[in-house]
Protein backbone atom coordinates (compact mmCIF):
# COMPACT_ATOMS: atom_id res chain seq x y z
CA UNK A 1 0.00 0.00 0.00
CA UNK A 2 1.39 3.41 -0.95
CA UNK A 3 0.74 6.02 1.69
CA UNK A 4 1.08 9.79 1.79
CA UNK A 5 1.50 11.42 5.21
CA UNK A 6 1.13 15.20 5.61
CA UNK A 7 3.10 16.72 8.46
CA UNK A 8 3.77 20.27 9.63
CA UNK A 9 6.77 21.79 11.39
CA UNK A 10 5.86 23.66 14.58
CA UNK A 11 7.88 25.12 17.46
CA UNK A 12 8.27 22.96 20.58
CA UNK A 13 7.26 25.74 22.93
CA UNK A 14 7.73 24.25 26.39
CA UNK A 15 6.63 26.34 29.37
CA UNK A 16 6.51 29.86 28.04
CA UNK A 17 5.57 31.59 24.80
CA UNK A 18 6.71 35.03 23.66
CA UNK A 19 5.61 36.67 20.45
CA UNK A 20 7.74 38.35 17.81
CA UNK A 21 7.82 42.17 18.05
CA UNK A 22 5.17 42.49 15.31
CA UNK A 23 2.95 40.00 17.19
CA UNK A 24 2.66 37.92 14.03
CA UNK A 25 4.32 34.72 15.19
CA UNK A 26 5.77 32.88 18.16
CA UNK A 27 9.30 34.07 18.91
CA UNK A 28 11.17 30.86 18.14
CA UNK A 29 14.71 32.02 18.91
CA UNK A 30 16.20 29.31 21.16
CA UNK A 31 13.29 27.00 20.41
CA UNK A 32 13.45 23.55 18.89
CA UNK A 33 10.92 22.41 16.32
CA UNK A 34 8.81 19.31 16.14
CA UNK A 35 5.68 17.94 14.47
CA UNK A 36 2.36 17.47 16.22
CA UNK A 37 1.94 14.26 18.21
CA UNK A 38 -1.06 13.46 16.00
CA UNK A 39 1.10 13.64 12.89
CA UNK A 40 3.92 11.71 14.53
CA UNK A 41 1.37 8.95 15.02
CA UNK A 42 0.26 9.29 11.38
CA UNK A 43 3.87 8.69 10.29
CA UNK A 44 4.16 5.70 12.65
CA UNK A 45 0.88 4.24 11.42
CA UNK A 46 1.99 4.55 7.79
CA UNK A 47 5.32 2.86 8.47
CA UNK A 48 3.62 0.03 10.35
CA UNK A 49 1.10 -0.56 7.60
CA UNK A 50 3.79 -0.76 4.91
CA UNK A 51 5.93 -3.01 7.10
CA UNK A 52 2.98 -5.41 7.24
CA UNK A 53 1.61 -5.04 3.73
CA UNK A 54 4.47 -3.65 1.65
CA UNK A 55 4.43 -0.35 -0.21
CA UNK A 56 6.02 3.01 0.31
CA UNK A 57 5.53 5.94 2.65
CA UNK A 58 5.85 9.48 1.26
CA UNK A 59 5.92 12.34 3.76
CA UNK A 60 4.91 15.80 2.61
CA UNK A 61 5.18 19.10 4.42
CA UNK A 62 4.38 22.66 3.45
CA UNK A 63 6.67 25.02 5.31
CA UNK A 64 9.99 26.83 5.46
CA UNK A 65 13.35 25.33 4.50
CA UNK A 66 13.92 24.12 8.08
CA UNK A 67 11.05 21.66 7.64
CA UNK A 68 13.57 19.30 6.02
CA UNK A 69 14.45 18.41 9.65
CA UNK A 70 10.99 16.93 10.28
CA UNK A 71 10.94 15.24 6.87
CA UNK A 72 14.35 13.65 7.48
CA UNK A 73 13.27 12.48 10.90
CA UNK A 74 10.34 10.69 9.25
CA UNK A 75 12.71 9.11 6.73
CA UNK A 76 14.94 8.02 9.60
CA UNK A 77 11.97 6.15 11.02
CA UNK A 78 11.18 4.40 7.77
CA UNK A 79 9.44 6.72 5.31
CA UNK A 80 10.83 6.26 1.81
CA UNK A 81 10.21 9.61 0.13
CA UNK A 82 9.83 13.20 1.19
CA UNK A 83 8.38 16.26 -0.48
CA UNK A 84 8.88 19.81 0.83
CA UNK A 85 6.51 22.46 -0.45
CA UNK A 86 8.76 25.30 0.47
CA UNK A 87 7.29 28.60 1.61
CA UNK A 88 8.33 31.12 4.25
CA UNK A 89 4.90 32.71 4.12
CA UNK A 90 2.80 32.44 7.29
CA UNK A 91 -0.52 32.99 5.56
CA UNK A 92 -1.50 29.45 4.63
CA UNK A 93 -5.06 28.77 5.71
CA UNK A 94 -6.70 25.36 5.35
CA UNK A 95 -8.13 26.26 1.94
CA UNK A 96 -4.75 27.28 0.48
CA UNK A 97 -2.93 24.38 2.18
CA UNK A 98 -5.36 21.81 0.80
CA UNK A 99 -4.96 23.23 -2.71
CA UNK A 100 -1.16 23.12 -2.40
CA UNK A 101 -1.21 19.50 -1.25
CA UNK A 102 -3.57 18.44 -4.04
CA UNK A 103 -1.47 20.23 -6.64
CA UNK A 104 1.71 18.57 -5.47
CA UNK A 105 0.36 15.03 -5.52
CA UNK A 106 -2.12 15.12 -8.38
CA UNK A 107 0.13 13.06 -10.64
CA UNK A 108 0.96 10.52 -7.95
CA UNK A 109 -1.16 7.60 -6.81
CA UNK A 110 -1.73 6.82 -3.14
CA UNK A 111 -3.94 4.18 -1.59
CA UNK A 112 -4.15 6.07 1.66
CA UNK A 113 -3.50 9.63 2.82
CA UNK A 114 -2.87 10.06 6.53
CA UNK A 115 -2.94 13.39 8.36
CA UNK A 116 -3.35 14.69 11.87
CA UNK A 117 -6.87 15.37 13.11
CA UNK A 118 -5.75 18.94 13.64
CA UNK A 119 -2.41 20.70 13.26
CA UNK A 120 -0.66 21.48 16.56
CA UNK A 121 -0.57 25.20 15.90
CA UNK A 122 -3.51 26.43 13.80
CA UNK A 123 -5.78 23.51 14.64
CA UNK A 124 -8.28 24.18 11.87
CA UNK A 125 -9.66 20.60 11.68
CA UNK A 126 -10.00 21.09 7.94
CA UNK A 127 -7.10 20.07 5.75
CA UNK A 128 -7.88 16.31 5.86
CA UNK A 129 -11.59 16.51 4.96
CA UNK A 130 -10.89 19.26 2.43
CA UNK A 131 -8.29 17.17 0.62
CA UNK A 132 -10.60 14.13 0.66
CA UNK A 133 -13.51 16.12 -0.73
CA UNK A 134 -11.40 17.72 -3.45
CA UNK A 135 -10.05 14.31 -4.46
CA UNK A 136 -13.54 12.82 -4.26
CA UNK A 137 -12.47 10.05 -1.90
CA UNK A 138 -13.93 8.94 1.45
CA UNK A 139 -12.61 10.29 4.73
CA UNK A 140 -12.68 9.50 8.43
CA UNK A 141 -11.41 11.93 11.07
CA UNK A 142 -10.10 11.68 14.62
CA UNK A 143 -9.23 8.02 14.15
CA UNK A 144 -7.64 6.07 17.01
CA UNK A 145 -7.70 2.55 15.54
CA UNK A 146 -7.11 1.56 11.93
CA UNK A 147 -7.28 -1.85 10.29
CA UNK A 148 -7.73 -3.23 6.81
CA UNK A 149 -10.17 -5.82 5.60
CA UNK A 150 -11.05 -6.83 2.04
CA UNK A 151 -9.51 -3.67 0.63
CA UNK A 152 -11.39 -1.43 3.05
CA UNK A 153 -10.00 0.67 5.85
CA UNK A 154 -11.82 0.04 9.13
CA UNK A 155 -11.38 3.27 11.06
CA UNK A 156 -12.59 3.81 14.60
CA UNK A 157 -12.92 6.99 16.52
CA UNK A 158 -13.73 7.53 20.14
CA UNK A 159 -17.13 8.99 20.89
CA UNK A 160 -17.33 9.42 24.65
CA UNK A 161 -17.10 5.92 25.98
CA UNK A 162 -18.03 4.32 22.66
CA UNK A 163 -16.27 3.70 19.36
CA UNK A 164 -17.73 5.00 16.10
CA UNK A 165 -16.77 2.65 13.28
CA UNK A 166 -16.32 3.69 9.66
CA UNK A 167 -15.54 1.43 6.72
CA UNK A 168 -13.87 3.20 3.83
CA UNK A 169 -13.02 1.78 0.42
CA UNK A 170 -9.53 2.82 -0.68
CA UNK A 171 -8.17 5.22 -1.69
CA UNK A 172 -9.20 7.24 1.36
CA UNK A 173 -8.08 10.03 3.65
CA UNK A 174 -7.81 9.23 7.37
CA UNK A 175 -6.93 11.79 10.04
CA UNK A 176 -5.57 10.34 13.26
CA UNK A 177 -5.16 11.29 16.89
CA UNK A 178 -2.35 10.60 19.28
CA UNK A 179 -2.96 7.30 21.07
CA UNK A 180 -3.56 5.30 17.86
CA UNK A 181 -0.03 3.90 18.35
CA UNK A 182 3.21 4.59 20.15
CA UNK A 183 5.66 6.19 17.72
CA UNK A 184 9.10 4.64 17.47
CA UNK A 185 12.37 6.46 17.86
CA UNK A 186 14.52 6.54 14.74
CA UNK A 187 17.46 4.14 14.72
CA UNK A 188 21.00 5.50 14.51
CA UNK A 189 21.32 3.81 11.14
CA UNK A 190 18.10 5.43 9.99
CA UNK A 191 19.32 8.85 11.09
CA UNK A 192 22.58 8.44 9.17
CA UNK A 193 20.78 7.27 6.03
CA UNK A 194 18.19 10.07 6.28
CA UNK A 195 20.94 12.70 6.21
CA UNK A 196 21.80 11.76 2.63
CA UNK A 197 18.31 10.90 1.43
CA UNK A 198 17.15 13.03 -1.51
CA UNK A 199 14.20 15.34 -0.86
CA UNK A 200 11.89 16.66 -3.53
CA UNK A 201 11.63 20.42 -3.06
CA UNK A 202 9.01 22.55 -4.71
CA UNK A 203 9.09 26.33 -4.23
CA UNK A 204 5.59 27.64 -3.61
CA UNK A 205 4.04 30.86 -4.82
CA UNK A 206 2.49 33.14 -2.23
CA UNK A 207 -0.72 31.62 -0.86
CA UNK A 208 -4.16 32.99 -1.68
CA UNK A 209 -5.93 32.41 1.63
CA UNK A 210 -9.63 33.00 2.29
CA UNK A 211 -8.83 33.45 5.97
CA UNK A 212 -6.08 36.05 6.24
CA UNK A 213 -3.66 35.76 9.15
CA UNK A 214 -3.31 39.03 11.07
CA UNK A 215 -1.39 38.12 14.18
CA UNK A 216 -1.30 36.26 17.47
CA UNK A 217 -2.55 37.13 20.93
CA UNK A 218 -1.46 35.68 24.26
CA UNK A 219 -4.18 34.66 26.71
CA UNK A 220 -4.78 36.91 29.67
CA UNK A 221 -2.78 35.79 32.68
CA UNK A 222 -4.89 35.40 35.80
CA UNK A 223 -2.27 37.28 37.80
CA UNK A 224 -2.92 34.98 40.77
CA UNK A 225 0.17 34.16 42.78
CA UNK A 226 1.03 30.62 43.77
CA UNK A 227 0.78 29.91 47.49
CA UNK A 228 3.85 27.94 48.50
CA UNK A 229 3.04 25.27 51.07
CA UNK A 230 6.63 24.54 52.01
CA UNK A 231 9.53 22.31 51.12
CA UNK A 232 9.87 18.55 51.18
CA UNK A 233 8.02 16.28 53.59
CA UNK A 234 7.83 19.18 56.04
CA UNK A 235 5.12 20.63 53.80
CA UNK A 236 2.76 17.72 54.46
CA UNK A 237 0.77 19.38 57.32
CA UNK A 238 0.14 22.39 55.09
CA UNK A 239 -0.88 20.16 52.18
CA UNK A 240 -3.31 18.36 54.50
CA UNK A 241 -4.77 21.69 55.62
CA UNK A 242 -5.16 22.77 52.01
CA UNK A 243 -6.85 19.53 50.98
CA UNK A 244 -9.32 19.99 53.85
CA UNK A 245 -9.98 23.61 52.88
CA UNK A 246 -10.61 22.59 49.29
CA UNK A 247 -13.09 20.01 50.48
CA UNK A 248 -11.42 16.88 49.14
CA UNK A 249 -10.50 15.47 52.56
Amino acid sequence: MDILVCIKRVPDTGGRVNLTSDNRQIDTSNMEFTISPHEECAVEEAIRITEEQGGEVTVLALGPEGTTEQLRESIAKGATQAILLQSDDDNWDAHATAHAIINAVKDKKFDLILMGNEAADLGQYQVGPRVATMLGVPCATGVKALQFQDGNAIAKRQDGNNWAVFELPLPAVVTVKEGINKPRHPSLRGIMAAKRAPLEQIAMDAPAPKMVHKGLKLPQESGDQVTMLGEGAAAVPKIMETLKELGVL
Binding site: A98, Q124, G128, R130, M211
Partner: peptide, 22 residues
Protein backbone atom coordinates in the same frame (compact mmCIF):
# COMPACT_ATOMS: atom_id res chain seq x y z
CA UNK B 1 -17.66 20.45 17.39
CA UNK B 2 -15.83 17.56 15.74
CA UNK B 3 -18.89 16.77 13.62
CA UNK B 4 -19.71 20.34 12.56
CA UNK B 5 -16.08 21.10 11.73
CA UNK B 6 -15.91 17.95 9.64
CA UNK B 7 -19.15 18.62 7.80
CA UNK B 8 -18.43 22.32 7.18
CA UNK B 9 -14.90 21.45 5.96
CA UNK B 10 -16.48 19.25 3.34
CA UNK B 11 -19.01 21.89 2.34
CA UNK B 12 -16.23 24.49 2.21
CA UNK B 13 -14.12 22.28 -0.04
CA UNK B 14 -17.02 21.71 -2.44
CA UNK B 15 -17.69 25.44 -2.71
CA UNK B 16 -14.03 26.48 -2.44
CA UNK B 17 -15.07 28.71 0.43
CA UNK B 18 -13.25 30.16 3.41
CA UNK B 19 -13.93 28.60 6.80
CA UNK B 20 -12.67 29.81 10.18
CA UNK B 21 -13.07 27.19 12.92
CA UNK B 22 -12.97 27.54 16.72
Amino acid sequence: TASANEILSRAAALGDWGFASA
